[in-house]
Design a protein around this nucleic acid. Structure first.
Lengths: 205, 205
DNA sequence: TCATTAACGTTGATTATCCGACAAAATGGA
DNA sequence: TCCATTTTGTCGGATAATCAACGTTAATGA
């Protein structure tokens, strides 16, 4: 196992090798069952030596955990990168969170197609649902801290997270024929007609 | 410069690095002028260190020479891999040389799109024309060594090589909307109606 | 069931690549 | 023109990846 000094993590060889392995693994997941994939498949497609795999990951499962963990981190940071104050719902202006979300999905389409459709969909879906839920919990808490919610918080969060998650899954399995912008706007409008009112936010127009 | 022992050439890192550099270079050629591409562009896109480039190539020109040289070698070996005896022209059976040729083009479409369209098209085209010409010279010499050609050899070879080269260039610049098989069959039929007769070969049917 | 094969996980020696730094050459704007 | 940047080409030390080999642990099938 290579050193984990601050510099070692930036070494181009490390980053490149890990990316090659991740890409190889995901593309294999699109073609065959997770259980049928062996280490040699991954390293051969990644064009790295088999022993190099073990220099980075203990086994196939730890690779999967690393990939999903990292992506969930990105998903979490998406919501924190947005300041909630400079947007109020509008029928023709997509919510910046939705825009960032769908552009992130489009940028990592292979990953999400695999994880929401093939490999252990339920397991990753649960974690993704939790991330979306938490993002909106933070947001609602900030926006309407001294307002009374028209819907109980837990019900509202479930409604939001499941609806977004469902839209995403459908979008991915249908080859993303709509653009991220279009999806963002549709979700914004749906939210405006339902979710935003429930949050007690008044519409600007 | 790494050692050039027989084993060193098979080292996975060498092959991978060279492929990364070649792919990066070709994709850059699709986006900008050859003269505007600098070494740093190539190495950054290939995700290798700049000094690694110099471990394999002296400069941008030697890279280009290596790439085109290798591909011309492949092109030459295409014709030698085919035994000419076990095919006689038929209207509905594509000439195996054409099939191999167009499948080779499809497999390396980025390279040929760049070299026949962008980078110094005339220079590479001349060499490619020569390879095609030579392939058919060998073939004609074998087939009709004791037959009298109905057309002078040099005129025949020019006609063959330029027509094939032209068809290829057109096919590539039009996004290859027809399959290699289809192109092979069309060229075979064209050859059957014109070239084969000129070669003094009789049609089977 | 046993034998054969395939996959796993580890190791040590070798080497290709990395990084940072450097001077020389080329480029471009004032 | 001159000057400031950028690009080029090279170098040495550090290290990640390579290969080959090994014993161990599942699979496979006869």
């Amino acid at each position: 196992m290579p050193e984990h000094s601050s510099k070692a993590l930036l070494d181009r060889r490390i980053l490149r090798t890990q990316q090659l392995i991740i890409d190889a693994f995901l593309s294999l997941c699109l073609e065959k069952e997770y259980g049928d994939i062996i280490i040699k498949d991954i390293t051969e497609r990644a064009n790295v030596n088999r022993s190099t795999f073990y220099a980075h990951y203990n086994d196939k499962e730890s690779l999967l955990r690393k990939i999903t963990g990292d992506k969930l981190e990105e998903l979490i940071s998406l919501s924190s990168d947005i300041s909630p104050s400079d947007y109020s719902p509008h029928f023709d202006v997509p919510d910046p969170y939705f825009v960032d979300l769908f552009e992130h999905l489009a940028a990592h389409k292979m990953f999400y197609s695999v994880m929401l459709g093939k490999v252990d969909a339920a397991l990753f879906s649960d974690k993704m649902l939790a991330v979306i839920r938490e993002s909106f919990y933070q947001r609602i808490a900030r926006i309407s801290k001294d307002q009374k919610l028209l819907i109980p918080m837990d019900v509202l969060l479930d409604y939001i997270s499941y609806s977004i998650h469902g839209i995403i899954t459908k979008w991915l399995t249908h080859q993303m024929i709509y653009s991220p912008e279009h999806m963002s706007l549709q979700l914004t409008r749906l939210s405006l007609l339902g979710i935003y009112n429930a949050m007690g936010v008044t519409q600007t127009n």
